[in-house]
Design a protein around this nucleic acid. Structure first.
Length: 481
RNA sequence: GGCCCGUUCGUCUAUCGGUUAGGACAUCAGGUUUUCAACCUGAGAAGAGGGGUUCGACUCCCCUACGGGCUGCCA
């Protein structure tokens, strides 16, 4: 799935051309919900402008990268519905290209070989920290005469300007100015010849023709340092947009103790992908007072100017609400498909053909009262279960002798009724009134008889979905206790 | 320690110098009702603190506090 193929359309490399965004996760186990939102923003931005959305796996840290982790990320993105253009690119596979750039900078004089050992640097830092001085390492090899270079391992560092300032023109954070004296000569190529992340991102973003870099604001400082590499190569810098991270409900950095951090956990909880997209889009981005919207609207409305500058907290209650409203307006086929995925993702048995059929007929009534797939399933129990219906304790309590008597009286009355809501309702009401009761008094027993539960869709809706024969059979079953 | 970013109802946010500071979720009180959900009506709820600039600041500037990030031959 991951390849090193890279085909940047040259016409798209200029900032004036079509938009190209990318999502560049590290394969560290699973797709973080915050990462998923970052991906969503990039996807919305590109898709809303007829641009391209690319995917790159930042797997240069070999110790922490696994094929399984990469697969989990790809799977998560696919589930979320964020389709990317072309093949996912492996950053590691492009190491030779990164090294090539580092050597080009060496040749241009915008980089140099540094022979300082890691121990040497660490010793310096410890001392600096102890003295309360800056820990920025100033390599003595920066201006050394090549003739004095020892025959030893070295790293290639960028030769950053020491004077002046570097300004990151960020579309979210505004212009952020850094004094160059606060920026160090970052290592681009390690002593073993492998590239560092700082070099790799820049080279890859450039080669991929990325025009807009939308990423977490934990990279804002890095942007300044990366600009030195762009400048060293004489490349145009992309448009930056550093978005705030997502925090947990207590406002702290999102971590496992906050509950669901991985995207797959939301999938397993049964939130539809389209609902999660809506919720995530509203986290840190807004378009006036719009809360519930379609993908098409989100793509049309999404823009960098609507992104907030403060970190947003996850709010599960709001997610529930958004999900409920999205499910209510979703089309039945999409829900059925999502339900299949939910069942599979949680290791539950797939629906049988008759169950699918029943579910399809009941869906209009189910989707109006559910916030997630498990809730749809709960509401759908009446159509998924087969006779004899075994009521749960609370439902059984509703089937007391008196109620059963009324049900047995009702059953023959329904035999000849026209099977339409008005007609059925008239029969039921008439029967209830014959006992001096309002419909509300016998509804619980009917609900229990039809669904075996105390919570279900409307009894009339259930009767219509079930059909005359099945309805009468269930009422009869229940009345006979 | 140094550098950088952030701070409007409990939460997500609107506001882009002049508003009774709006909406949504949540909460509370009513209503509708056949359970649940939904829905309707209403209520309470906010500009971190302190200085400036200005006729006028949530909005611009400074300081403080708090939160976050970076400061690696991690990404």
């Amino acid at each position: 799935m991951v390849s090193e193929r890279l085909t940047p359309p040259m016409s798209e490399t200029a900032a004036t051309g079509p938009v190209v965004t990318r999502f560049a996760p590290s394969p560290t186990g699973y797709l973080h919900i915050g990462g998923a939102r970052t991906a969503l923003f990039n996807w919305l931005f590109a898709r809303g402008r007829g641009g391209r959305f690319l995917l790159r796996i930042e797997d240069t840290d070999r110790a922490r990268s696994t094929p399984e982790a990469t697969a989990a990320i790809l799977d998560g993105l696919a589930w979320l519905g964020l389709d990317w253009d072309g093949d996912a690119i492996s950053q590691f596979a492009r190491a030779p290209r990164h090294a090539e750039v580092a050597h080009q900078m060496l040749a241009r004089g915008s980089a140099y070989k540094c022979f300082s050992s890691q121990e040497e640097i660490e010793t310096f830092r410890e001392a600096a920290r102890a003295d309360g001085r800056s820990t920025l390492y100033r390599s003595p090899w920066r201006d050394a005469d090549p003739a004095t270079h020892p025959d030893a391992p070295y790293v290639i560092r960028v030769k950053a300007p020491r004077d002046g300032v570097t300004v990151v023109h960020d579309r979210v954070q505004g212009d952020v100015t850094f004094r160059n004296e606060d920026l160090d000569d970052l290592v681009m190529l390690r002593s073993d010849g492998t590239p560092t992340y700082m070099l790799a991102v820049v080279v890859d973003d450039h080669d991929m023709g990325v025009t807009h870099v939308i990423r977490g604001d934990d990279h804002l400082n890095n942007a300044a340092r990366q600009m030195l590499v762009y400048q060293g190569m004489g490349w145009d810098v992309p448009v930056w947009a550093h978005i705030p991270l997502i925090h947990g409900e207590d406002g702290k950095k999102l971590s496992k103790r906050h509950g669901a951090v991985g995207l797959e956990e939301y999938r397993a909880m049964g939130y539809p992908a389209f609902a999660l997209r809506n919720y995530l889009a509203r986290l840190g981005w807004s378009h006036g007072d719009d809360e519930i919207f379609t993908d098409a609207q989100a793509q049309e409305w999404f823009g960098l100017e609507g992104i907030g500058r403060a970190p947003a907290r996850l709010d599960m209650k709001k997610l529930d609400s958004v999900s409920g409203r999205q499910i209510a307006m979703a089309d039945d086929a999409a829900l059925a498909k999502g339900l299949d995925d939910y069942l599979a993702a949680t290791g539950q048995p797939a629906l049988t053909l008759p169950q699918r059929d029943g579910l399809a007929r009941a869906m209009p009534h189910l989707k109006e009262r559910a916030k997630s797939f498990p809730e749809i399933l709960e509401q759908a129990r009446f159509v998924l279960a087969e006779r004899p219906i075994s009521p749960d304790p609370k439902a059984a309590a509703a089937l007391d002798p008196v109620s059963r008597g009324i049900l047995s009286e009702l059953t023959p009355q329904l035999h000849h009724a026209t099977w339409a809501r008005d007609a059925i309702e008239a029969v039921v009401t008439r029967t209830a009134e014959a006992h001096g009761l309002k419909f509300g008094k016998i509804a619980p027993a009917m609900r229990a008889a039809l669904s075996g539960r105390t919570v279900s869709p409307s009894v009339f809706d259930m009767m219509l979905v079930l059909g005359r024969d099945e309805t009468l059979a269930r009422l009869s079953d229940a009345s006979q206790g």
